[in-house]
Write a protein that binds this DNA or RNA. Sequence first.
DNA 1: CCATACACCTGTGTGC
DNA 2: TGCACACAGGTGTATG
Length: 267
Amino acid sequence: MPELPEVENVIRSLVNKVSGKKIASVEIITPSIVYKRTDFIDLVKDKTIVTLERRGKYIIIRLDEGNLLIHLRMTGKLLFNGEIGKHTHLKIDFTDGNYLIYNDVRKFGRINYLSNDELNIYLKTKVGLEPGLMELEAFKTKLMNKRGPLKKILLDQTVIAGIGNIYADEILFASGIHPLTETSKLKDEDYIILFDNIRGILEKAILAGGSTIRDYVNGDGTAGGFQDAHQVYGRGGKECICCGCTLEKIKVAGRTTVYCPICQRIR
DNA sequence: CCATACACCTGTGTGC
DNA sequence: TGCACACAGGTGTATG
Ligand SMILES: [Zn+2]
């Protein structure tokens, strides 16, 4: 489900509701979503949530001691006082009677307890540049050191963190760059356009509440609105909004990729 | 080293 | 209607 804009909206919808709350109990309904740690419940129980943060597609629940690191993968949801059902896999009860649940139809998501040091090491090795904070030169250097189709590189979370299949296609279309372009063929001006579109599209998507293709909702249960602004994602075979020609559908790095053969030239 | 396949799961849409 | 199959916002591991 969620890419950076959706994860950001989950956090924004929850941060004021859960910060300061003390955890009274934790119920693990589906053990497979919690990384093996026999003392998980003991580590989390009686802790207080300090705040929520995001790195790439990860949600970090900062506790007064340690952290919960959550990845929603495809269909994970974090819901404040949400409806408990057959897809609820974890429940955190607060001392004031409110609760937070983790729902996930496909059970791909993961929740882990990490100390501050463990978290820092993990993020340093696995999570790349933060789109909203990165600088052009660092971005350019990092991309130039990678070979292969540009879309594959945009999807690589160790390069830039947070871009998934929807936003990769939207960013490339907005930039007028073909998804199979090799970074060695990109000119300085291409890097600037790409950089601006990564930040611009992700920011617009955040402000629109993210994209709801099927079932994404934020922590309140509110769906996003950015799906109405998609130019190419999910539109293979339809006409290009810009030039009217037929949008192509191919596979890149194993993912369905839609682009306009006229508007997005190979460099 | 790389690219591809598959595994993890369930639900939904399509075509016969 | 029913059934088989393809496909889905992601990523880690195995395979060639
Ligand atoms: Zn076009």
